[in-house]
Amino acid sequence: MENPAQEILAIKEAMGSRLAILGHHYQSDAVIALTDIQGDSLELSRRISDLDAEHIVFCGVFFMAESAAILRRPGQKIHIPDTTATCPMADMAEAGRVETTLNILQADGRTVIPLTYVNSSAAVKGVVGSHGGSVCTSANARTMLQWAMDQGDAVLFLPDKHLAMNTANALNIPEDERIILPQGVIDGDPRLFVNPAATGGKRLIAWPGYCHIHEEFSLHTIAELRTKDPAIRIVVHPECDPAVVKAADGNGSTTFLINYAAQAPAGSIIYIGTEANLVSRLAARFPDKTIRPLSLSLCEDMGKITTDKLAALLRDIDSARPVEVADEIREPARLALERMLEACR
């Protein structure tokens, strides 16, 4: 079959309930049209335990497929059409460095609870789970940061420094009680400089990671747009710089951004600061409003998932190698994820 979409639909019909295809909001329209369930990271994580399908295909980036593999039930197989679709932010936190950092931070006897954004590897989630920590998404970061702060003396939030600081602002955590770990380079090797003297009195210690896509949005762009038309509304994702978030009219997860667009009055002009695939989809869904991207930012890794690759995977799915997470990582990582799901019931 030359048309990959037709081939995918035919395979879906033949496999029936044995197959479920999940798609993150940042996927292209062509891929989203072929998925059974769409959502952000939290929504999709919650759906895994309810699925009866033998094969679950994740159209997103690799850490999402790993999270599904952690939460899957026995007999279920998790797949991703392109295993090279990674997340640069997730790659900024490596499990060994996180473990070492926690050991340094806790050397003075303080209890430091790690909290990792879901945009992190299974190995990092495993370290977090084994140290009594949990996971958060952009939708529940406020709830989970408060949860983590209630568990100990301080929180190590990773890998996104912007989400950490924006969430701290929402919880009114004083600025003198937070710190972003500095990052430098020694002999070409990026590493963290963890200074116990600097971190000792802090309640929130943030890893210095960030999202390349959301880093592109600037105060200059916002100022220019407001000068041209003061009536516009601007909403952004909390992975943006805190100064950008403060200058916007609202901020929140992809679900928040979708709901904002849906509930805005007809005739509204809305600029949205997040991945452009979602923004263009919202513009098409709500033609009675003008919805535009704050800047044209596309995630190259999300774009690696195509209908051709999805068709190729489905064609041989019974013999395809699923995404696996080793038991020694999976068990503590599952514990970290389950703590989140329990706290956010």
Rank of each mutant, 00 (worst) to 15 (best):
L219I: 09
A85F: 06
R178H: 02
S45I: 04
S218T: 15
V279E: 03
L156D: 02
S49M: 04
R178Y: 03
G129R: 06
D108Q: 11
L102R: 13
E342P: 01
G250C: 12
L257F: 01
G133R: 08
G109Y: 11
R110S: 02
T83I: 14
A68E: 06
I329M: 14
A93H: 09
A261H: 09
R191D: 10
E275A: 08
T199D: 04
N166G: 04
A20S: 14
I70L: 08
K309D: 09
A312Y: 10
V194E: 00
S41R: 04
T307S: 15
A122N: 05
M165V: 08
A248P: 01
S45W: 07
M92E: 06
I70Q: 05
T137Y: 06
L105V: 03
D52G: 15
T86N: 04
P238E: 11
T84G: 14
L42F: 07
A122T: 02
M340N: 13
T84Q: 15
H25W: 00
A276F: 06
H24Y: 01
F62N: 10
K304A: 06
Q38N: 12
V155S: 10
A139W: 00
L225W: 01
D308A: 15
L105I: 02
H220V: 10
M149F: 09
A170G: 03
V124N: 04
V185T: 14
S49H: 05
N103Y: 00
V155C: 07
T306D: 12
L282D: 05
N277G: 15
I205Q: 07
F217E: 08
V194K: 00
A10Q: 12
I270T: 01
E2F: 15
S268K: 13
L105F: 00
I32A: 10
M64K: 00
T100Y: 14
I32T: 11
H24F: 00
T101K: 00
L181N: 14
R226C: 03
I329A: 14
